[in-house]
Amino acid sequence: MAIFTEFLDKIDQPEHRARVEEVLNWVAEKYPELDRVVKWNQPMFTDHGTFIIGFSTAKTHLNVAPERAGILHFSEEIIESGYGHTKQLVQFPWNKPIDYSLIEKMIEYNISEKAECSTFWRK
């Protein structure tokens, strides 16, 4: 996970840094076949060169990015879980538990849906 050290070191709040590290470690352990990369100063996981999921931080939440298709596919579940979202990001508040099952579903969806994808982003 050394590839993510610089990103983690820039997170000022120790609790937030620990939370992000926990999530990144969970993804890395659950999906060891995914490649770990940093693009646009954000930690991401890719599969055969295509984007699967990315992470960023904000003052009040951890952003999880499954691409717009993932947001659309899981929109109801995201709302039912009590999380906010934009067109590209799911917002996991710092003061709420992380729903790992939702992250797992988004990752599984992207791995499956992008199995034949030859570009980084969906077209």
Rank of each mutant, 00 (worst) to 15 (best):
M1I: 05
A2G: 13
A2E: 15
I3G: 07
I3S: 10
F4H: 11
F4I: 10
F4K: 01
T5N: 15
T5D: 15
L8K: 04
D9H: 11
D9K: 14
D9P: 00
K10E: 08
I11C: 09
Q13H: 09
P14G: 13
E15Y: 08
R17P: 02
A18S: 01
R19T: 08
E21Q: 15
E22T: 08
E22N: 03
L24T: 03
L24Q: 04
A28F: 01
A28W: 01
E29S: 11
E29N: 08
K30N: 06
K30C: 02
K30P: 02
K30T: 11
Y31E: 11
P32N: 13
L34N: 03
L34V: 06
R36P: 02
V37F: 02
V37S: 06
V37I: 11
W40K: 00
W40D: 05
N41Y: 07
P43W: 03
D47H: 00
D47W: 00
H48D: 13
T50G: 08
T50D: 06
F51H: 14
F51Q: 07
I52T: 10
G54F: 00
F55L: 13
S56A: 06
A58T: 01
H61V: 03
V64C: 13
P66G: 03
E67K: 13
A69H: 11
G70T: 09
L72F: 03
H73E: 10
H73M: 10
I78Q: 02
I79P: 04
I79E: 15
I79W: 05
I79F: 08
S81F: 03
G82T: 12
G82D: 11
Y83A: 01
Y83C: 01
H85I: 12
K87H: 01
Q88M: 09
Q88E: 05
Q88T: 13
L89H: 12
L89A: 11
V90I: 15
Q91G: 08
N95R: 12
N95I: 05
K96R: 10
Y100M: 09
S101A: 12
S101G: 11
L102M: 12
I103M: 10
E104G: 05
M106F: 05
I107H: 06
E108H: 07
E108D: 13
Y109S: 12
N110R: 14
N110H: 13
I111F: 06
I111C: 08
S112G: 11
E113A: 15
E113F: 11
K114N: 12
K114A: 09
A115D: 14
E116H: 14
E116Y: 09
R122T: 05
